[in-house]
């Protein structure tokens, strides 16, 4: 069980959230027409064994998208921040 310290709602069980994958990828600007940048964003992942920054959506809480630091090797949890705060 992952417990996520939502900056809005506090410490909650993973069952309140949905997972949104790697948060290190950057969505290209909407007017970027290069195939490679969209391929990279949509399909390619670092998939590290260790520290991972990832999106979680507090769907059954504040409905904020969060960025959680989590270790994929041992499930240790780091900081959790609002995704909206990280800039574009």
């Amino acid at each position: 069980m992952i417990r996520i310290n939502c900056p809005v709602c506090g410490l909650r069980d993973e069952t309140e959230f949905t997972y949104g994958g790697d948060a290190s990828v950057t969505r290209p600007p909407i007017d970027d027409t290069q195939l490679s940048s969209w391929m990279d964003f949509v399909f390619m992942r670092d998939n590290p064994r260790g520290e991972h920054r990832e999106f979680w959506h507090h769907v059954q809480g504040c409905r904020q998208w969060l960025v959680l630091e989590r270790n994929t090797a041992n499930h240790a949890i780091g900081s959790c921040t609002l995704a909206a705060g990280r800039g574009t």
């Binding site: 969505r27 909407i30 999106f55 959506h57 769907v59 995704a83």
Partner: peptide, 18 residues
Amino acid sequence: AAKILGYLEHLLQTAWTD
């Protein structure tokens, strides 16, 4: 319904925050 809402929120909160 649920999927689209989450997707729109994702766009607004992670990419198009402006």
